[in-house]
Design a binder for these strands. Structure first.
Length: 740
RNA sequence: GGCCGCUUAGCUCAGUUGGCUAGAGCGUUUCAUUCACAUUGAAGAGGUCGUAGGUUCAAUUCCUACAGCGGCCACCA
């Protein structure tokens, strides 16, 4: 054997041997044990966070050694919004934008882009030793997935769980799509708060430009100051509109003047007030973030202006008319911004597809409450429940091309009010309503160049996978990514496996996507199959740098796992992610730690070298006492037992620390030294090595396998049986685990 | 504002139902080392376990309050 463990030379070779032996495929015999790998983004390359998939690899390897028929199901996600965002950044560098393409070309371009950037991640996973059944890999835009998603949608539509509604969505003018509530960030900011006179009453607002969309002024019903004004009408400046003063509990009497202008089309709260008071919504900002004034507005010059500029313009006009009572320049509040691009979101009214979650979430809540699905660490149960409690209807349509298109078809002749954007034969972008466009253009031309359409809520549609006969255009919105990845258990497992592998055994994932993904999988799985998707949920936190800071490109502290693997070996990398970390805590990845763990792999290697050498050497002089061997074997037994217990509880931190301690400081420092003195037999030591190799294999698969081969032990280590711990013959008091 | 978590050695963190001199990795000090491994061994220094109370024979561990840090959620226009 070489003097040190040369991971560079051997890891690839070893992995190949495993694959050739077909060990990653589920065996035909044994109890099923199933883990679905959280699908990474198809265009992503490996980052440190993926390293935590190690816990799943550990479980799979361990269970396989215990004789289970293990399946680790891999896949990749198209990650609709994320990916299109990345692609558009790439387009921008070339001086282009998504508006230069018709929908179909855009989709194809993104697909090509993803294709060029994908495939890397599985290679990298293999470098880390991950043993998933790669041949079964599923991509969320595969036909199988699309079919499943479309069927689910149909079923939901039949069950009256799908509706279209004018909903106030958080719309990002820059990214060109609506965002779910989970995709918004809040940013604290200081802005001026303007006090504007609306006749006898003064309102306070940070967004004066939305005043053209005002339909009322609201005051608190308990507010004595305004009691006699309720029900009166005031004239809205710069319009011919007269709006009522209404009472609503939501108004805070302490804040501002205690009177709020109500703009249902551009504010979440106002939208709700508007619904309660049955007010109409007047939209004054379009989806490009430009002012579109209603007919009764009389202020010149701001039509088509961007929101920010319009605000200044409106203030100037108000000042001129002496309608500004005062301005509080230092008003600090928080604004909603796009989690992706960081720009202000514009609450906008657009027709959206929604899933009613009230009935869907009920069984999920029940399953969590009854511990049908268990969370590790436990605190996430509570978090899950509190999220489920406030979860409301789910807007599933995204105004992006990269995704599964909603299978609804609109007939143009009967839906004249559909807004259409398309690129005509000459390559010009054309906008208009269906009934007008049909007069000027051939249907085929519109269809070919189609970019997007917005159908009014009342529009009639047919749900169908294929195009109905006639002048039908398909909805251009795509499903939210989580709508497809939420059905991950159903789309990755074969139908006949539902009986044996659903629920799967454990879902291990980042806790941040508990609500995005875990909750949706539970919802879909219970709805479609009336089964929980997994028995256990194991959650980990982000991977941080050695100072405990989150890794991010902007902080410049991103570590490339592959570089560490090149330098120190996959085993060291894996072990360092698990060693000394508590369940659910953030994971510290530091080079120092990886180096230390590399030393540990080397220790394993060298212990084996010692034993190999001592095999050749002549027997030790002293008579070896049998009782020493006996105690040795008992402790070995106890090590096995404890390791197994830790794994059963998903205590990877404790398991690795324990094994490290026992192997290095007991087996090597004590036992090998005793062997040199002739106090422990070669045979016992050899048995000990075999046991430790097996126990360590799930964590450090490469070096243990390499040693197994070097020692010419039988077969592949990866296929060996997990040692059984016999319980008889000792009490734990006999064995002292502490180092000293 | 609400909820959750954290606060243990110089640094980063473990500590499994309260119980023997509180642990690891890195760093650090001294010594050893042709004998599996300097990617080593031995020994050591370093902690009033955030603060103040309480429960208990016993508290780093349980309870309460407070302080600091972090996360999530909800947000007053």
């Amino acid at each position: 054997m070489e003097k040190t463990w040369d991971h560079k030379k051997e890891e690839e070779e070893i992995y190949k041997r495993w694959e050739e032996a077909g060990v990653f495929k589920a065996s035909k015999t044994g109890e099923p044990y199933t883990i679905l790998m959280p699908p990474p983004n198809a265009n992503a390359s490996l980052h440190a966070g993926h390293g935590m998939y190690t816990v799943e690899d550990v479980l799979i390897r361990w269970k396989r050694m215990q004789g289970y028929s293990t399946l680790w199901q891999p896949g990749v996600d198209h990650a609709g919004f994320e990916t299109q965002f990345v692609y558009e950044k790439y387009l921008k560098k070339q001086g282009k934008s998504r508006f230069d393409f018709d929908r179909e070309s855009l989709y194809k371009n993104v697909a090509k882009f993803v294709d060029e950037n994908s495939g890397q991640i599985y290679k990298q996973f293999k470098r880390l030793g991950f043993g998933a059944d790669w041949k079964r890999s599923v991509f969320t835009l595969d036909k199988k997935v699309r079919d499943c998603v479309l069927n689910t949608f149909k079923k939901m539509a039949n069950d009256n769980l799908i509706y279209r509604s004018n909903y106030l969505v958080n719309y990002c003018n820059y990214c060109g799509t609506s965002l779910s509530e989970l995709e918004t960030d809040h940013k604290d900011r200081v802005d001026p708060l303007y006090f504007i006179k609306y006749g006898p009453i003064t309102v306070a607002t940070t967004r004066p430009e939305t005043m053209f969309g005002d339909v009322a002024v609201a005051v608190n019903p308990k507010d004595k100051r305004y009691k006699n004004l309720i029900g009166k009408l005031v004239k809205l400046p710069f319009t011919s509109r007269r709006i009522p003063i209404i009472a609503d509990e939501m108004v805070d009497m302490e804040f501002g003047t205690g009177a709020v202008k109500i703009t249902p089309a551009h504010d979440q709260n106002d939208f709700e007030v508007g619904k309660r008071a049955k007010l109409k919504e007047i939209s004054v900002i379009d989806l490009m973030g430009k002012m579109r004034l209603p007919d009764d507005a009389k202020l010149e010059g701001i039509e088509g202006m961007k929101v920010r500029m319009a605000r200044d313009e409106v203030i100037r006009a108000l000042v001129k008319e002496k309608l500004i009572e005062k301005i509080d320049e230092k008003y600090s509040h928080s604004v909603m911004v796009c989690y992706k691009c960081g720009r202000d979101l514009e609450p906008s009214i657009i027709p959206n597809w929604f899933v009613k979650v009230k009935t869907l979430k009920k069984p999920v809540i029940k399953a969590v409450n009854e511990d049908k699905v268990k969370f590790y660490p436990k605190r996430f149960k509570k978090q899950m429940l509190s999220w489920l409690a406030i979860m409301h209807d789910w807007p599933i349509s995204r105004q992006i091309a990269w995704g599964i298109r909603i299978p609804a078809w609109y007939k143009l002749e009967t839906n004249g009010q559909i807004k259409i954007s398309f690129i005509d034969k000459k390559g010009e972008r054309v906008n208009g309503l269906a009934n007008e466009l049909l007069k000027q253009y051939d249907f085929g031309e519109i269809e070919n160049g189609l970019q997007n359409l917005i159908a009014p809520n009342e529009a009639e549609y047919i749900i169908s996978e294929t195009k109905p006969k006639g002048n039908y255009l398909q909805e251009t919105d795509t499903f939210d990514t989580w709508f497809s990845s939420g059905q991950w258990p159903m789309v990755t497992l074969e139908k006949q496996e539902y009986k044996t592998r659903l629920p799967t055994d454990v879902m291990g994932t980042l806790h941040e996507i508990l609500r995005f993904w875990v909750s949706r999988m539970m919802m879909f799985s219970l709805y479609l199959e009336n089964k929980i998707p997994f028995k256990d949920v194991y959650l980990w936190s982000m991977v941080a740098d050695k100072k405990g800071k989150k890794m991010s490109k902007s902080s410049g502290n991103v570590v490339n796992p592959i570089e560490l693997v090149d330098k120190y070996g996959a085993d060291a990398f894996r072990f360092s992610l698990l060693y000394g970390t508590a369940q659910g805590s953030k994971i510290i990845l530091s080079e120092d730690k990886v180096r230390a763990m590399r030393n540990f792999s080397n220790k394993i290697w060298n212990a084996a070298r010692f034993i190999e050498n001592s095999k050749i050497q002549k027997p030790r002089k002293k008579q070896i006492s049998k009782s020493n061997d006996q105690v040795f074997k008992q402790r070995l037994n106890e090590v096995t037992k404890k390791t197994t217990e830790f794994l059963e509880k998903y205590e990877f931190g404790l398991a690795t620390e324990f094994l490290y301690q026992e192997f290095w400081h007991w087996y090597c420092d004590e036992c090998i030294e005793k062997n040199k003195k002739g106090e422990i037999s070669n045979e016992a030591l050899l048995e000990g090595l075999k046991t430790f190799l097996k126990l360590l294999h799930p964590f450090v698969p490469f070096v243990t396998e390499a040693v197994w081969q070097e020692m010419k032990f039988e077969g592949l280590l990866v296929q060996q049986r997990w040692p059984s711990s016999r319980k008889k013959n000792f009490t734990s008091e006999q064995i002292i685990f502490k180092k000293k």
